[in-house]
Amino acid sequence: MVKPFRKIPQPAIDRLGRGSEYRPSRTGLVISLIGLVLITGGVLVTHRAENETVAVLPEWDLVLAARIGGIEYVVPSEPETATCPCDPKPAKTRKKPPKFCPT
């Protein structure tokens, strides 16, 4: 799959025949302009979010929701301590898993 680095004979550089890869900046600017339009759209557009209640949210709120409402880490479970009604010591409480941990 992978091969180690080694010195290999390299083909000669055809410095005259090779293009300079020079290009005008027009295409890049048009692409950036499209990006700007998308961002403007993202600022203006609202999304209909349906959970327990239906709400209309701006897109940045959804980005924030994606950021904080993701997947949670596995919290190691502690062995349940056996308790009897006569035992005055309360059972060990489990640590609460972190709420916002999207990975």
Partner: peptide, 30 residues
Amino acid sequence: ACPIGVIANFSAWHAFPLLAVGVLVIVAGL
């Protein structure tokens, strides 16, 4: 916010991530 995480989350919500794609397209174009 991570743009890839945002795009994936929006995909799960069946919404188009305008902000994330917009930022990436601007940076990519420039």
